[in-house]
Design a protein around this nucleic acid. Sequence first.
DNA 1: AAGTTTTTGAGGTACGCACCTCAAAAAGAG
DNA 2: CTCTTTTTGAGGTGCGTACCTCAAAAACTT
Lengths: 340, 340
Amino acid sequence: MRPTTKDLAKAAGVSLATIDRVLNGRSGVRQKTVDAVNEAIERTGFQRNQVAATLARQKGYRFGFVLPRSGDEFLDVIIKHISEFDQASRAEMIATKVVRIDDHDPHRAAKTLSRLSADDYDGIAIMAPETPQIRDALYRMRERGIQTVAFISNQQEEGSQSFVGIDNIAAGATAGRLMARFLGHTAGSILVLAETMQSRDSLERRLGFDKVMSREYPQFDALPTLETHGTAERTRLVLANAFAAHQDIVGLYIMGSEARVAIDLAQNLCGEEKIITIAHERTPSTEHALRAKTLDALINQDPGHIIRSAVRTLRAQCENRETLASQERIRIEILIAENL
Amino acid sequence: MRPTTKDLAKAAGVSLATIDRVLNGRSGVRQKTVDAVNEAIERTGFQRNQVAATLARQKGYRFGFVLPRSGDEFLDVIIKHISEFDQASRAEMIATKVVRIDDHDPHRAAKTLSRLSADDYDGIAIMAPETPQIRDALYRMRERGIQTVAFISNQQEEGSQSFVGIDNIAAGATAGRLMARFLGHTAGSILVLAETMQSRDSLERRLGFDKVMSREYPQFDALPTLETHGTAERTRLVLANAFAAHQDIVGLYIMGSEARVAIDLAQNLCGEEKIITIAHERTPSTEHALRAKTLDALINQDPGHIIRSAVRTLRAQCENRETLASQERIRIEILIAENL
DNA sequence: AAGTTTTTGAGGTACGCACCTCAAAAAGAG
DNA sequence: CTCTTTTTGAGGTGCGTACCTCAAAAACTT
């Protein structure tokens, strides 16, 4: 039988109340006693029964997913998955809610964050660009006792904060390698498209892409990143200009998660010769393009896994546990028509 | 506040005892009453609190993973992941154990299965070839009240039993498409290797592979499947013969999960011209080969996901719940050096 | 040493459900 | 209508932990 708090109390030679104080980090316990209890935990191999703990807490766990207000197709997919998860996990006493923030105004975003109270949220997973305001807001949030985890968009390297999502440098490198291999022996220019190069994610993807292309495939010329600013008109404009300026375009790498317009457009502009097109994130339209062969490959991060992983991470933080890093690494998925 | 059993009792106009009887499928309740309770469940939106239920059950859940005794590298990976999972989920009152069966002797295997008691296992996930004996043993097991789920190796189509794993036809097609795209404009013969073509998994993979190759890439000649019987000697023999008989080999597709020997061997036999090699399942050695560029792509099913999914499925069956199919579909992963 | 503060213990209640017993009520049989 | 069988209700206990209160003990202060 696994030891319970009662057994632990006996083993440590203290009372249940003290065990409770130590286990839940309450004050008023001498360091000496804390050490004795921890020693007993080690010795007996005590593990808190999370099932009973969750039940006793009354309120299960309430997690918030902080997402940008303005969104692309991928965001819709994420939101759908969050609500699905919410449904499925209610029986486990885990409630998830989506909170939208103004992604173009860091001050307003930070203000929204500052209004999130520990009375309503045990933790939040945030997808937002890294700005000083948001960084500060997150810091204060943690001080308020709300756990935080960055997801999809990384916040910073410093490791002070956990992150759930893919390694974007590796994702870019993956795209680069696939592009080169699919192109085979041909040579020419490759277009790279992003919503904006302000975002760290795009920068990292580009970095990874170039690392592979420039070092190993000199026959290709990866052109400077074109910025679409997320609008259809501008996408049209920059793509038309690029095709006019370069006659030898053989590939298109769409780094942003809104690929719809670009795929359709490139299809028309490229003429007879088909170009290899690679995009990110599985959405209804990229999926359709993949099936229609207007897209050759998709680099994807599974929304379901990301969400579950974010919740597991937040929960572990709430319970002061470690997570198995191996279980939480989000895979960089390569999708083609056959493995959708 | 979510309704509890108490609320449900009031809503249905029955006592807690009756609610308990209905919820846990005990006998001695008139159909009329059962219907009334179910109607009240619908009406109030009652959902059993699994946290409390698990706690009250005393014994958490005990699941067995039935694996073949003779194993390859992939099996080792699976086992490692199961024990990792076991560690991590003890706090959730879920215990997992590995049970080995004799995969070459269906009768002994069935006998081992018949000895598994409902007193020791709430459910089992089985990875085994489909034979009448095993099918029967599984049937009887379910009668004994043990939930079952097939994993990795499918048992049958009939849908009477749940399956956690990849669609092997699609996996084969994925391999085929990648093979063709990586080969580009070259032409020639492609070797296909399997442990045995007796297994349904290999058959399905071959089927998918051929579907893509024969229909869309007539320039390639996918040779008949070579069987290695899982031994290094035979692998050496069939490969040497094949390379001797065909001078135009450009690709190698290894369908089994023991790729080590074949990769090394093909590397030596193919001479100057590099051949495109694709294998299944991530293991230390396929991972190494991928990094060393002696392997071009890997088709993988994530062991961690499979195991978690199998457990979620078994648990849902124990609790008489549905699972979200979308959450449980195992992805056919494409791995290259960049997205390992 | 007396007083003050800090630390600890003993005991309780609650969470939502499973599982048990026994008696009472309802339904069916003759 | 009585007798038997089936169905239902009332009540209890326990799972392992969180969280609370109050008093007692121990540790410092002056």
